[in-house]
Design a protein around this nucleic acid. Structure first.
Lengths: 327, 327
DNA sequence: CAGGGCTTTGCAAGCGCTTGCAGTACCCTA
DNA sequence: TAGGGTACTGCAAGCGCTTGCAAAGCCCTG
């Protein structure tokens, strides 16, 4: 293992200078700095994070708290964050809180002091704890806005307005919303966006709260038919897929008789058959953006914007269209 | 933050003794030891992992390499490993290798020295690199057996033999296997187990290799029908679900005309409608077992057994049954 | 040209813990 | 009683890096 001392010797500088060339480059003359960096490259040097942590308090470890890994929605977000961390020579430790607020609090206190900061994906629960925590530790909230904290969200509401616009143009007026899990922060936002953009002439039929699963989508179909909706918007593609599946089963044609669309896109899963109309976004970008914001926070630089929005674009599939006049 | 020095002072011993009471308890008189432990409790002391790492080389960080997070198969495995790590006061960092052997090698070399050990889930690629790597670093291989390395696998082959037994008893003779991704180590094992247990009177029709996705399952249906199989065993439930879905679409009744079963169980995803016959196992147990084996390795204790097997039990669903005589 | 300020670099003191070595006390055997 | 163990404890030297402080060199201003 090459040490910083080796690098310093190779570059003909003292250890202090070599150290500063890496962590406070602005304090070193550019010519010296490049000599050091060249030596770093040549010797394949990587700082020993333990040694750095001991003096600076920065461990190079970042924790990401997610409620579960079973929902594939989180997977690419984690992957994106992890890559961004790796690019910055940091590690990401993923902590599953299993949706329990108590466990989340436990984890946060246990880890703070061992990690430099947190990316918290907490779709449920109240703002207060998060706010209090974020006041003392660098933290970025994902897929949720907590006033006063840095956050990164997907702009699904904007995408939903586009979707509603299209449905309205196609002549849909009764739209069912298969809502997400109980207490989901995003769910409320989506529901509001739908209702608002549907306008006074439309009617939003909310079905749920529902677990975001294939089965729940299938089971919701009866309700959809009972309420005579001509279009269904689901909280995520698992629900949408379940609905399409069950509609097939009971002999309802999609999209001729009912249109189906989804707010979250789980296409990466290979869950895309048939092509469901969805909102497409870059989940890895979400993770990366969160990590970048967090690293600014950790380094004491102000984040570019407090609330980053990742665009969600309407992606037309074969499950939406003009409703048949006889329905 | 309380330091070890505080504990030592409170217990009336030197720092060395306090340190040993924690990491080498056998070297300290039991009366002294309990005084130290009492002080630790009272002051709420936690060792500073960075400081410990600096001298002892043990960072308390363990890396888990998975090919991807998009496949929900890995999610509960990771969660299980993470919980086991947490219980042992260690952190788990998840690294996604995106299936590339080069990237995997990169990650392994970059991380070794920063982590105490590895859990490697490498369903594809050759043994040689893994073997070489495992010779120099504590490592446990999951879902694969590499002779000479410690590994933990799910005993799907045994489960598949049970499944085949049932299919044969039901009168199935032509069984299609929707195989997994190209180069998958497990896939070969499963295919062999099926063929062998199907016996000389049966015929195994291998379709694939296939990506383990819903869509691929749907698209494989035509081939299944062409080859006149009466039963389908899929590499995982995503494939099975896609097949069931498409069989419905083309008007083939399940299980009256064709039985469908799956080797991997992704029920946690909510992908269980309708109830597909699968092999059920405890994926979190896999992760936890791997982590426990790894910790033994790290501590220099020999692992209990070199190759741990997690049982996979046949779970009957509504998608298998006696084939109709007219098919 | 003296003095002040700025930039760049080096010195050296740790950060909190582990561990090789040495010292002390005590017990056992011959 | 001397010699040799054994069991326990303390001393002190780091582990690899960061950072406050100070020195050195330079440019500018008055």
């Amino acid at each position: 293992m090459t040490r910083l001392a080796d690098v310093a010797r190779a570059a003909g500088v003292s250890m202090s200078t070599a150290s500063r060339a890496l962590s406070r480059p602005d304090l070193v003359a550019s010519e010296t700095r490049s000599r050091v960096l060249e030596a770093v490259q040549r010797l394949g040097f990587h700082v020993n994070p333990a040694a750095r942590a001991l003096t600076s308090g920065k461990t190079g470890l970042v924790a990401m708290c997610v409620p579960t890994l079973s929902n594939p929605f989180f997977a690419p977000i984690i992957a994106g964050a992890q890559q961004a961390a790796e690019a910055a020579d940091r590690h990401l430790t993923v902590v599953v809180t299993e949706g329990s607020a108590r466990r989340e609090a436990e984890v946060l206190t246990r880890l703070s002091g061992q990690v430099d900061g947190f990316i918290i994906v907490a779709p449920r629960g109240g703002d207060a704890d998060l706010l209090e925590f974020g006041a003392t530790t660098p933290a970025v909230i994902a897929e949720r806005v907590v006033p006063g904290l840095t956050s990164v969200i997907i702009d699904t509401p904007a995408g939903l307005r586009d979707l509603t616009g299209m449905l309205k143009a196609d002549g849909h007026r009764r739209v069912a919303y298969l809502s997400g899990p109980e207490g989901s922060w995003m769910d409320r936002l989506r529901c509001d966006a739908l209702r608002e953009s549907l306008g006074p002439n439309g009617e939003l039929i909310v079905i749920g709260p529902l677990p975001p699963t294939f089965r729940a989508g299938a089971e919701a179909v009866q309700g959809i038919l009972d309420r005579r909706a001509t279009a269904v918007v689901a909280y995520n593609s698992l629900l949408a897929l379940g609905a399409v599946y069950q509609l097939h089963n009971v002999g309802v044609r999609v999209p001729e008789q009912i249109s189906v669309a989804s707010a979250d896109d789980l296409a990466a899963l290979g869950l895309g058959a048939p092509e469901i109309t969805t909102l497409r976004f870059d989940p890895a970008g979400l993770g990366a953006a969160a990590m970048e914001a967090l690293m600014r926070l950790i380094d004491g630089r102000p984040p570019a914007v407090p609330h980053t929005r990742i665009p969600a674009a309407l992606q037309l599939g074969s499950t939406t269209g003009r409703p048949a006049t006889d329905v």
